[in-house]
């Protein structure tokens, strides 16, 4: 691990200001996808700003009838909250489908969003990777690609975003609240938070340097059945091959997003419109233009079958 200096920040604005002052600084909260990468010297921050003591660990109702989840709320606390279990079931289901008990106890709301979009070649420092070292090439293209993206990818990167929570937030139209180094705040719709790789796969999201997430806000609860279905290579503690987050109303209308298929949670307006017509039409609207490899072509029919299972569950 490269050397770094350590600081425990005392307010969100102070943390953002410190990050702007210290080039090469990173925030740390749970540390579950930072410490592992630092050990491999894939992440090499020169300064760590601990953001665990900023009072961002609260969950509170919003005036609009929604729920505001502090950036430092642990994934376990988030998933177990009575209001989330009752009104945002898709989120509880998604969070407990991810990682392990130990990791969920450490990982935070903001950290889950900021975990790296990644693939095994990103972790293998002996191999080229445009995300790890821009311009070095992509080892996944032409390599082993069972887990890789089938939509939204580029010639530079075909990694997938592994978060389950973010897929549920995408279907709920959550927003991300931040504070910048100059103390100003802004609200980023979750749809605009993560990036497609394009020619700059080293950037996973649209935060500015030093910008700190303070909360994620959920709008008023959306009525309907909340379902999260995750298909993976083992029954627990594995990334999704394909996952579906859906909220389906009694009349068959609703909204749907996919995990495991792209550089970010994947949702299209056409798919939401197609939902009442069934899995085939919805799948076509989500991954009809998929570009696959021989290793991951199975994901296209798997998306349709997982959607079919979700729609059957919604009727049941």
């Amino acid at each position: 691990m490269k050397q770094f200096t350590y600081e425990r920040a005392t307010s969100p604005a102070a943390a953002a200001a410190s990050a702007a002052r210290n080039q090469g600084a990173k925030f740390v909260a749970g540390g579950t996808n930072l410490l592992d990468l630092m050990k491999l010297q894939i992440e090499t921050p020169s300064h760590l700003i601990d953001v665990n003591d900023l009072g961002l660990d609260k969950m509170e109702p919003t005036p609009e009838g929604g729920l505001r989840i502090g950036a430092a709320v642990r994934n376990t606390t988030f998933a177990a909250d009575e209001r989330v279990r009752r009104d945002y079931g898709v989120l509880t289901r998604a969070i407990v489908a991810g990682a392990s008990g130990q990791i969920r106890n450490m990982a935070t709301t903001a950290g889950n969003l900021l975990q790296r979009t990644r693939c095994p070649y990103f972790y293998d420092t002996n191999m080229p990777c445009n995300k790890r070292k821009p311009g070095s090439g992509c080892s996944a293209i032409g390599g082993f690609t069972r887990h890789h993206a089938i939509v939204g990818q580029s010639d530079a990167c075909i990694a997938t975003h592994p978060s389950d929570m973010a897929v549920a937030m995408r279907v709920l139209d959550a927003s991300v609240e931040t504070v910048r180094a100059n103390g100003s705040t802004r609200i980023i719709p979750i749809a605009d938070f993560h990036r497609l790789p394009g020619n700059t796969p080293q950037f996973d999201h649209n935060l500015e340097a030093g910008e700190l997430i303070t909360a994620v806000t959920l709008p008023k609860p959306a009525g309907g059945r909340h379902i999260y279905r995750k298909v993976r290579d083992r029954a627990s503690y594995a990334f999704a091959l394909v996952s579906v987050a859906a909220i389906v109303r009694r009349d068959g209308s609703g909204r749907v997003a996919l995990g495991g298929v792209a550089h970010k949670p994947w949702r299209t307006e056409a798919a939401d419109r197609a939902l009442p017509q069934g899995a085939k039409a919805t799948a076509a609207a989500l991954v009809g233009d998929a570009r696959t490899t021989e290793h991951n072509a199975f994901k296209v029919p798997l998306v349709e079958r997982t959607l079919a299972a979700v729609l059957a569950e919604a009727k049941g």
């Binding site: 740390v28 749970g30 540390g31 410490l35 008990g101 106890n105 450490m106």
Partner: peptide
């Protein structure tokens, strides 16, 4: 953080002690 052999209980919650400073 993948194997759980380092599990400790911090403030009544189990964590992977290799992934925290």
């Amino acid at each position: 953080g993948q194997c759980g052999a380092c599990t400790m209980i911090v403030d009544s919650r189990r964590i992977a002690s290799c992934l925290t400073l």
